[in-house]
Simulated assay, not measured.
Amino acid sequence: MKYLNRLPEPNELKQRLKISHDMFHKKELRDQEIADILRGVSKKKIIIIGPCSSDNESSILDYVSRLAIIQESVKDKLLIIPRVYTAKPRTKGCGYMGMLHQPDKSSNEDVVKGIEQVRKIHIKVFNESELSTADEILYPDVYEYISDLLTYCSIGARTVESQEHRLLASGISCPVGMKNPTSGDLSVMLNAIFASQMPHRMLYMGWEVQTDGNPLSHAILRGSSLFGIEKQNCTISEFNYLRKHYKTPVFQVPSVIVDVSHSNALGNYNNQIYNCYNLIKLCNLYGWVNRMIKGLMIESYIEDGRQNVNGCCYGKSITDPCIGWKKTYDLLMKIANDWNII
């Protein structure tokens, strides 16, 4: 192992790439609205939506500016959070690993430059759209560089069993969604949520720190994959399991976000649309399901499908395939029109 470059201090980068007071105030208002939804104070639904990975600044800003227009038209029913995922977990450790590793999609990794790019893209998205963002916390130390920008965090299927990620989630100031592991074991996810709601003393970035616990940590259902077989877990069976095991006061906000992509899409990105339709029907049929499900997570971009990392199609994913803008617009309008917010 070689030591290459010393990373900047988080506060140094935050001072150099600041957010405005106006932006900070708007984020506070959105943070409160998201908390109210998860706690059941507000009946609105959360939609976390965007490309699988954020790889190109111009197309990302184009995409979120379109989301902002939709947000204004559906603001009475939906709260839209742009999915700005800047680090890409790789099952086999190869391929495009996200803006953090490859800020210019090049093969030469420059993590110091990547951290700056990560902070810049979150700031630019918020400035462009006034929609504060979501990111996956793949590397715990990176969180500190964007902690003042994120309005939602997720812990992925491959890291939800990590003690370090669970303890970090207990010190994060915004809601944290815990995904079920790729095995599909919901008890692992519930244990992660429970752990993250507790206060902890831990080692973090060269310090001994004390966390307060995160009362807004909650479940994300993303399906499972065992021996190459994809299986959904967004059915009434899984909701009944959570109804039985996911209760207050042990769990402070027994809420669920359903990731309609990944294994829930069964290998076909267009299945995201049908998953949304089916979930809305379930929520409209069963009040308790509607109260449990606080929102959806959708992989969407400007163009349908995916391309190779060096592809030149504007607004098309270079990782997992996404639904394109026309389908996205129609889907968001249908969600807003058809979901009975009770």
Rank of each mutant, 00 (worst) to 15 (best):
H200F: 04
C283N: 02
K14N: 12
G311H: 06
N264G: 05
V118K: 02
K88N: 09
I236Y: 07
H165N: 13
P175Y: 06
K44W: 13
P249Q: 05
T86D: 11
S225Q: 14
R39S: 15
E161H: 02
D104T: 15
K105W: 04
A192L: 05
I335Q: 01
M23P: 00
R291S: 10
W325N: 11
R30T: 12
T328Y: 05
K26E: 15
L79F: 04
N214V: 11
L221S: 04
P82G: 10
N11R: 10
L332R: 02
M178Y: 05
R6W: 09
K124C: 00
A265R: 06
E57K: 14
M23S: 14
I49D: 06
C276V: 15
Q272T: 06
Y329R: 13
S154L: 08
S106K: 05
Q252A: 08
H21L: 15
F126L: 00
S224K: 07
K247E: 12
Y63C: 06
L282H: 13
I155E: 07
C94I: 07
R166L: 11
V256R: 01
G223M: 08
P103N: 11
Q232L: 05
E12M: 07
M333I: 12
K88C: 01
S261C: 03
V209Y: 07
N233E: 13
M205Y: 04
L226V: 12
T235C: 10
T151S: 15
Q210S: 12
V125W: 02
V64K: 00
L331A: 05
L78H: 03
P82M: 04
S53H: 02
S58V: 11
K327A: 14
T235N: 12
L296K: 03
T86Y: 09
R158I: 03
R90A: 02
G324H: 04
A336E: 05
K120D: 05
G114M: 03
V111I: 15
K316A: 02
I155C: 04
S106T: 14
I46L: 14
Q197P: 08
R39F: 14
P103G: 13
V160G: 00
D212K: 15
Y85M: 04
S237Y: 15
S196F: 04
K75M: 10
K247P: 01
Q252T: 13
N271A: 11
D304L: 15
H25A: 11
I293A: 02
N275Q: 10
I293S: 02
R16V: 07
F251A: 09
G315N: 03
L13E: 05
S170D: 09
I81L: 00
N5Q: 14
L29Y: 01
N233F: 08
N5A: 13
T182Q: 13
D259N: 10
I69Y: 11
Q252R: 05
I342N: 14
Q102L: 06
G206H: 07
V258H: 01
A169G: 10
F24V: 09
I70H: 08
E130M: 08
M178T: 01
M189E: 01
D304A: 14
G287C: 10
T211G: 07
D141G: 04
